[in-house]
Design a binder for these strands. Structure first.
Lengths: 133, 133
DNA sequence: CCGTGGTTTGGACTTTGTCCAAAGTCGGAC
DNA sequence: GTCCGACTTTGGACAAAGTCCAAACCACGG
């Protein structure tokens, strides 16, 4: 099994793993979990009532900047966060239940030619998930 | 050349092509244009000052529902609209200038297996555009 | 010319995210 | 053990983006 987000954070040096950061990391953990920042906030409040919105937002941003958390823009309305960075994968949005599902990364990131410098490619599929199909 | 958004809308039956809808369509038209709803609103106001925000938002949504306009979720904050639906293509976000660029669709939409029913695949590349690279 | 249904309007409202100054907390130096 | 400085958190105000709704408007068929 791959190390969890929390375990990966514990390896980071020069970085205080405060109670707030631990709670945010714990809330995010899980297979096929793609929470919004506000969902993270409410679940974090259940574990640590005095945590503030600003902390959750900035902590999420830090995890993303550290490369330990994936930020997804799926609906143009909110951002979702995926703690599973390894192995790389893509996402399916079910047109029926609106759920977000991990999809195996079984395709080489296609090059786009034309002198562009591609750093990463993210694929968003739309269709029906296994439950709805 | 492919028909423009406005030309395609004129073909639609059972649909009133009002002044407001025509203005929205005209504003969107263009190569490599990826406007946000508020950008569409300000440009539409220049042509038709009494147009309202609600109309622009609902008109954009209608065009998307008709399949005549592509909605992009690139930054989790706002939505952008692309009138060029044919030929299909993908998008690059330049990490340097933050611009959005069309990228040729030169890759077969990969299947994702596992009994999923894929309807469409959208690829978002991150990297540097030809100007910045 | 009237009624009907689709369309637009303005404005209030919600959601999501950002910013900032003040307060709190941790770890190392001494 | 205590103190200092740097890092972290907090609450609240603010901003941006989008939604909702009742009333007004308008176009067309009858």
């Amino acid at each position: 099994m791959h190390p969890t987000l929390l375990e990966r954070l514990q390896q980071q040096r020069g970085y205080r793993l405060t109670a707030q950061r631990r709670v945010v990391a714990q809330v995010l953990e899980g297979e096929n979990l793609h929470l919004t920042a506000d969902e993270v906030l409410s679940q974090a409040e259940a574990m640590l009532p005095e945590i503030s919105r600003a902390t959750v937002y900035s902590t999420l941003q830090q995890f993303v900047d550290m490369g330990q958390l994936l930020e997804l823009s799926l609906d143009g309305r909110s951002r979702r966060y995926d703690p599973n960075i390894d192995p790389p994968h893509h996402h399916l949005i079910c047109t029926e239940c609106d759920g977000v599902f991990d999809v195996a990364h079984n395709v080489a990131a296609p090059d786009a030619g034309d002198g562009l410098e591609i750093e990463s490619a993210q694929i968003i599929y739309r269709g029906r998930c296994t439950d709805c199909a």
